Amino acid sequence: MNLKENVMAVYHGEQPDYYGDLMAAVEFIPDPLFIQDALLPQDGQEYMDSWGTIRIFLPGAPGPHPHITRDNVVIKDIEKWEEQLVVPSIEDLDWTLAREVASKIDRNEKLACFFYPGGLFERSHFLLGMETALMNYMEYPDEMKALLRVIADHKMAYIRRVAEETQPDIIFYHDDWGTKQNLFLPPRVWRELIKPLQQEIADTIHECGMIYMHHADCILEPIAADLVEIGIDIWQGVIAQNDIVKIQEITDGKLAMIGGIDGPKIDVENITEEKIREEVRRAVDTYCPGGRFYPSIPNGICFREWNNDIFLDELSKYGREYAEKHPIA
């Protein structure tokens, strides 16, 4: 099997040659909106994105982040959000590079993937600030619902445009709904405000003939069944702090998952090679029996080069050994 055939075998619950990270089989199509908003100089200076949020990229940081103050926050009063929000146009973006890259991807060998960050929850706290957003979800649900409606409509229009311009195999949608301890919002609030719109987004992705892969490297266990109801095809970023075996039982094989290897646990100094290999084998042995599982580090890599080399070597060896010793009937 080539890379695509192998990961799709896992996706369909069929026998693969080996178990490994689905992300090794994708090629990314550059997103003109992401390039405009998030590919910033690593100089610690302030830059405004297309929605008006100020971001900075500090020297030595892994990536840019919002830098929101009382003075620069986009929405200062949730009851007057319509007066303060300017929704960016998607009509004047340059798709030349995206179309060029998409046309060169060998779709027989690889999956064409479009990375789409800034989901409903993430965009809401970029516009309001995290603390204010969390309070508004509880205290001003009607206003938040109306704001999220506008964001969702923009996202669906953009997804349709992405499909028209580049026709990816996968939309890699990004929205962290929690931390390593719990969800940001109570499940009741998430179900009332986020879930219905997220299902519309999922429907749009599917109507365009694409797989919906959702990144969230956090706790999602309390809403695991909801992920299936929404129509998420693949959950990428499944951290080991979730009870993954329980989630596999709850979702009854309807949700493919990528993750399970505890990256922070093995991406440390003075760890032994055997400890790294042991964690890889633990994840494979524990989660692959549940089916449709891609063992990986949720954020993709160890940042320490030596640790990453050992991790990749063990995943390559043991992922193949496990597949050979545990054939799917």
Rank of each mutant, 00 (worst) to 15 (best):
P222Y: 10
P141T: 01
R281H: 11
P187Y: 07
V26H: 02
H125T: 12
G63M: 14
I266D: 10
I194H: 01
Y47N: 05
N2E: 05
G260N: 01
D153T: 11
P295A: 01
Q42V: 10
G129Q: 00
E321Q: 08
Q15P: 12
G231V: 02
Q45K: 12
I297M: 08
L193G: 08
D94L: 06
W51H: 01
Y287A: 07
H174M: 12
T204M: 02
R191P: 10
V228S: 08
V26I: 01
A38L: 15
S316D: 15
F121P: 09
H154K: 07
E273S: 15
P141Y: 01
T96E: 02
G231N: 08
G60V: 09
Y116E: 07
M130L: 11
D31Y: 07
L127T: 02
Q241L: 14
P186Y: 04
A240C: 06
M257Q: 09
D226W: 01
N182S: 15
C208F: 09
Y294D: 12
K265G: 13
A9L: 12
E79H: 14
R320M: 09
E192F: 04
L127H: 00
E165S: 00
D252T: 12
Y318K: 05
V268M: 09
I250H: 08
Q84T: 01
A98Q: 02
K110F: 10
S316M: 13
A216R: 03
H154Y: 15
V162M: 06
R277M: 13
G290P: 01
W235I: 10
D233N: 06
Y173T: 11
Q84K: 04
